Amino acid sequence: MKLKHLFASLLITLAFAMPVQAAENYAIDIKGQHAFIEFKIKHLGYSWLLGSFRTFDGNFTYDEKKPEQDKVSVTIETASLDTNHAERNKHLRSADFFDVEHFPTATFVSTSYEPTGKDTGILHGTLNLHGVSKNIVIQVKQIGAGPDPWGGYRRGFEGRTTLHLSDYNMKKAAMLGPVAENVELFLSIEGIRQ
């Protein structure tokens, strides 16, 4: 009888000692350059102008059982904007557009996540850009997850959204014409589990 009580006590102790499955925390892989924030905007309606932000950092959580609780936080250095053309970069960083001297960072913080399928969902959050905070929606798709060759564990997503320049009080946006009002944003994010 004592053995039975001892065994029961041991099981209860082990149950409380075992970790509870919770959200996993991931740091965006900036050092390995496995994350990208890219954009495209129409140039006078004749072609696409492509660019990216080279310097940013952030993290996200992932809970397979409760994906609606997933969270994302990203900070972007606006001066890292690069369109592969030095003079254009200088103009876009100026007070006419991003005004990086007064607004050196842009931030995105998620507010909610809605799963729409096994690996897809809609991420809601607040983007603070050029001193303006706006709620935006990002269409998200999980690309994959698993161990890496260095003993870590990784998870990757892509996201797409469209921003409107007039929402962010950029003084000279109108000079680009109505076709340049919409900026298509593409995110490729790979995180390393912490």
Score class of each variant (00 low, 15 high):
Gly152Cys: 08
Asp70Thr: 05
Glu68Val: 12
Asn169Phe: 02
Asp119Lys: 02
Ile136Met: 12
Ser80Met: 11
Thr162Asp: 10
Met1Leu: 09
Thr161Glu: 04
His102Leu: 14
Tyr113Pro: 11
Ser80Asn: 14
Tyr113Leu: 13
Ile143Val: 12
Ile41His: 00
Met175Tyr: 02
Ala145Ser: 11
His91Asp: 13
Leu165Asp: 00
Asp148Pro: 04
Thr162Ala: 13
His85Ile: 00
Ile136His: 02
Phe103Asp: 07
Leu14Ile: 02
Phe36Gly: 00
Pro67Arg: 11
Val183Asn: 04
Lys134Cys: 14
Phe53Gln: 03
Ser112Tyr: 05
Gln69Ile: 01
Arg155Leu: 15
Thr105Gln: 13
Ile138Asn: 01
Leu176Ile: 08
Ser133Cys: 13
Asn128Leu: 14
Lys42Asp: 05
Ala173Phe: 04
His85Asp: 06
Ile41Arg: 05
Lys2Tyr: 05
Ile138Tyr: 07
Glu190Lys: 10
Lys118Cys: 05
Lys90Leu: 09
Pro104Phe: 10
Gly152Lys: 08
Ala180Asp: 02
Gly32Glu: 03
His5Ile: 13
Gly144Ser: 01
Asn182Lys: 14
Ser110Arg: 07
Ser166Lys: 09
Arg54Asn: 08
Val137Lys: 13
Lys90Asn: 08
Met175Leu: 07
Trp48Thr: 04
Ala15Gly: 08
Phe186Trp: 00
Glu24Ser: 15
Phe157Ser: 06
Lys65Thr: 13
Asn25Ser: 13
Ser94Met: 03
Phe108Ala: 07
Leu49Ile: 10
Met18Ile: 10
Thr120Ile: 09
Val132Met: 08
Arg54Asp: 05
Thr55Asp: 14
Ser47Val: 10
Glu24Trp: 08
Ala8Leu: 12
Thr75Val: 15
Lys40Ser: 12
Ala35Glu: 03
Arg155Phe: 02
Thr13Val: 11
Gly144His: 00
Asn25Glu: 12
Ala145Asn: 06
Asp82Ser: 09
Ile192Gln: 00
Ala35Leu: 07
Phe39Glu: 02
Thr120Phe: 02
Phe103Tyr: 15
Val100Trp: 02
Thr105Pro: 08
Asn89His: 03
Lys40Cys: 06
Ala95Pro: 05
Val100Arg: 00
Ile143His: 01
Ala8His: 03
Asp70Ile: 07
Ile189His: 06
Met170Leu: 11
Thr162Trp: 01
Ala106Pro: 10
Leu129Asn: 06
Met18Asn: 06
Leu49Cys: 06
Leu92Thr: 05
Thr162Gly: 08
Lys42Ser: 15
Ser188Tyr: 12
Thr55Asn: 14
Gly151Phe: 14
Tyr168Ala: 04
Ser166Phe: 02
Ala86Arg: 07
Gly156Leu: 15
Met170Val: 09
Met1Trp: 03
Gln33Cys: 00
Gly151His: 08
Pro178Glu: 09
Leu127Lys: 13
Leu50Asp: 08
Ala86Val: 03
Ser112Met: 04
Lys134Trp: 07
Pro104Trp: 10
Asp119Ser: 13
Gln194Gly: 06
Ser94Phe: 04
Asp82Thr: 04
Tyr62Gln: 11
Asp148Arg: 07
Asp96Glu: 10
Lys172Thr: 04
Val72Arg: 02
Glu64Arg: 13
Ala106Met: 10
Ala145Asp: 03
Ile76Trp: 07
Trp150Gly: 05
His102Cys: 12
Tyr46Cys: 01
Gln194Glu: 07
Gly159Cys: 08
Ser9Ala: 14
Phe98Met: 12
His124Gly: 11
Ala23Gly: 14
